[in-house]
Amino acid sequence: MSVQPNAGDAEEVSLRARLADVFYTWSWRLPGRRWRRLFAFAAAEAESALELRYAAARTESPERAALYLRHAEDEARHARILLHWARQARGQSLPDLPRAHAQLFRHLGENVFLAFVHRGERRGRRQFEAHVRFFSKRDPRLAAALRSILADEVQHERYTGELAEHECRKQARRFDVLHRYRRAGAALTYPLFAGLMALLYVLASPLSLLLGRAPRGWQAARRSTGGD
């Protein structure tokens, strides 16, 4: 599949892209979806920036450190752009971006990390092509902002593709599947867990009668409780 920075305007689109268009045409219109999705994109970009800065500090190769730093700078800029548009869409301030990352470089090793980033960038590029197509008539300014991000994604996809060793791509795919399973697991389990906890909290509440009040003021010393 050829990579076109201005693919949003391309006349010929693949079957995969057509399906994506149908899906996004429906999903962007869901109420409250626009700011939430733009915010989620911003979160993904911000996390990626952290991953790349982390990779830059750990790689043995100065050339790659330089590439990762530039890439991180792009991702951080994308996060700012997407946050701006998410704020516009919501019309009020946004929650804080999550601050964590999975330390993929450490867990996967540099080669599989690169292959994984390459997969992510390719997937991101395809999604952004569809988003640009969706917004090009409906909101040209947002489309232009997304297009500027798309241009960077194309470049990121290219350099990571050049660096990623072929044999690592399988491992990256396996990790990607696991990653998705865990995400899905989290999404499905948490409501179940939350419901269980709420029920448990109510059932256990009579125990509070046995606990008494929290102590006030200075308490005499107790033995330290360290152990093994």
């Binding site: 999975a102 997937r123 389990t189």
Partner: peptide, 20 residues
């Protein structure tokens, strides 16, 4: 145990844009 088995603590997602 339910949380641990289902990966219910994994919520970071670098390089992955949400579909929904």
């Amino acid at each position: 145990a339910l949380l641990l088995l289902t990966g219910g603590l994994s919520y970071v997602a670098p390089f992955v844009y949400t579909l929904f």
